[in-house]
Simulated scan of single mutants.
Amino acid sequence: MGNGVDIIYEPIRIRAHHILCMQGFQGLGYSEEFTVNMAQIIEEIRKNPFSLIKIIVGVDSICEHCPHNNSPGICNKESELNNISDMDSKVLEKLNIKKGSIVSSSLIPTLAMNLSRQTVKKICGNCSWKNSCLYFQDKMF
């Protein structure tokens, strides 16, 4: 037994559709706290391209500071017309990733860019942020 300390890094929890949102994020969000948190997570992932990302369906590390996360772990926007979890499921299906998969953060941009224009329109077409999302705009035009 050594005197060393074992360091365990928990993967960053990212809901599947946020893989796409992170590509087009430009500092807008539901609140200042949400926006700052999302910017910090994106920056952390970009600075550490080999950090681990756990792809989930449901409230993630980005959602932690969202005003719609009033009940810890439950998104109050889930009941809207464009069900947020459905967006997550579509992304998982189109990227052929299983819920709970752990991937290197360096793969995130590649995964997002591999989706076709038609797929992005199907996933993001009802999103309230699509008109200010650089990823969506780039894919559509």
Rank of each mutant, 00 (worst) to 15 (best):
G27Y: 10
S71E: 15
L52W: 07
C124S: 05
N82P: 08
K54D: 00
E93H: 12
I55S: 00
W129A: 04
N69F: 09
M22R: 01
N82V: 10
Q26F: 09
I42Q: 02
G100V: 01
K77I: 10
Y30H: 04
N3S: 15
Q137Y: 10
Y30K: 08
R13I: 06
K77C: 12
T35L: 01
I55L: 03
N126Q: 14
C63F: 04
L107S: 15
V36N: 11
D86C: 13
E32Y: 08
K90W: 04
R46D: 10
N70F: 14
K130E: 06
L28G: 12
I45K: 08
I8Q: 08
V91Q: 02
Q137H: 12
F25G: 02
H68L: 11
E93N: 14
V36S: 10
L115D: 02
R117A: 12
L20A: 01
V91T: 05
N76M: 14
P72I: 13
I12C: 02
E33V: 06
E32R: 10
C66A: 06
A39H: 07
K94R: 15
L115E: 05
I45Y: 10
S132L: 13
I45F: 05
K54H: 00
I62V: 08
S106L: 13
I102R: 06
W129D: 10
A39Y: 03
Y135N: 04
F136Q: 01
L115A: 03
N83Q: 15
N126C: 10
C63R: 03
E80G: 12
C124M: 02
I102K: 04
H18K: 02
F34H: 03
T119F: 08
E80K: 14
M113I: 11
I102F: 05
G4Q: 12
Q26Y: 11
I14Y: 01
I108K: 05
F25A: 06
I41Y: 00
H18C: 02
N83W: 12
V103N: 03
C63I: 06
L111P: 03
E78F: 07
Q23L: 05
I7V: 06
S79E: 14
G2K: 11
E43S: 15
D6S: 12
K98R: 13
S89L: 15
S71L: 13
S105P: 04
C133T: 07
